[in-house]
Design a protein around this nucleic acid. Structure first.
Lengths: 178, 178
DNA sequence: GTAGGAAGTCAACAGTCGTTGGCCTACAAT
DNA sequence: ATTGTAGGCCAACGACTGTTGACTTCCTAC
């Protein structure tokens, strides 16, 4: 088949995101990604140069944290993260990969420091303890994703969005305000 | 050098635990493990048959959850898990591996269902909601380990054991009792 | 209509991996 | 002194990986 350069690049990127999210960095083969995109592996190299650069492109994403009223920030954050995890493969890519790949771990730290922490500073007006608060929130939100989407603990998978929000909101709210 | 069969097996197993904990399943090469143990890769195969069996032996471990008074279970659990993470490499092996290896994920689910859930049933006397409670506790404890030992978020690494216990205990306690 | 470049294919490279089988070597029992 | 055996080493296998370069095919601009 014959496609435009931009189209092909997009198709490869979509396939790469899926594979990285499902299998992690090492198991997501360039050959497998190329097969998903119905394309020769050499095309992946032509368009992205190297596997690492392809990964960097696939792992690019924005948390898009919304502005929140301080007294409802707990519930708002939990809801927002739950939807992000299900809608955007970027987060699963990073979580699956950050555990065994230092570059991906560094990117998670950057996203945390650049997006979560500023929001917490803004919500609490307490720059000194904001880093601890933010990392506690991250620990609970990441733990949720880990047990629900990666390890698939049955009770976590079975729970509805509303149930999880009800359980986790007070935790996040307390990490913000106590 | 010349060792007894049991000695060599133990040396290999120790090296394997370190490598699996540090690198995860795929990056922990049999050749690298053998080099750490100052031994030929063929010996690993002779003693453990296959890489998967070696991993199964290296990932064997017991949470050793203590009996706890219900009103102090939150603090007790957090303290116990924090020390387990630092003392026993088995947990890091499973966490690093369970994210990209389905067999290891299955083992984490088994440990969760066989060790954490019974304790929660015992503490709460509420068999119906125990699964949700237990998995919520697991999510927070795993999130703690992930952000502190794997992703190494700076504020989490810098926090002392007592600070973390103070922050997380109310969360776990609430997941148990509310 | 033809030249040029872009899209795509193919085969091979060098390296690494788990795994295997044959070989060597030290030691204990005879 | 000889033999049996168990611990250990070496070299190689087949499979798979990221990556490369030459080749073909098609569309477009002149």
């Amino acid at each position: 088949m014959r496609r435009s350069s931009a189209e092909t690049k997009a198709v490869i990127l979509a396939a790469a995101r899926e594979r990285f999210a499902a299998d992690g960095y090492d198991k997501a083969t360039i050959r497998a990604i190329a097969a998903d995109a119905r394309i020769d592996p050499a095309m992946v190299m032509r368009y992205f140069g190297t596997k690492e650069k392809l990964f960097a492109a696939a792992a690019e994403f924005d948390l898009e944290l919304p502005a929140l009223a301080p007294d409802q920030a707990g519930a708002g954050l939990v809801r927002h993260f739950l939807r992000k995890w299900e809608a955007d493969e970027g987060l699963q890519v990073l979580l699956r990969t950050g555990v065994t790949n230092e570059a991906a771990a560094e990117r998670m730290r950057t996203i945390f420091a650049g997006q979560v922490m500023p929001l917490v500073v803004d919500l609490t007006g307490d720059p000194e303890r904001a880093p601890v608060r933010a990392s506690l929130i991250a620990s609970q939100v990441l733990g949720l994703a880990l047990s629900r989407y990666i390890l698939k603990f049955p009770p976590m998978v079975a729970a509805t969005e509303e149930e999880l929000i009800a359980w986790l909101s007070p935790t996040v709210q307390r990490y913000l305000t106590e």
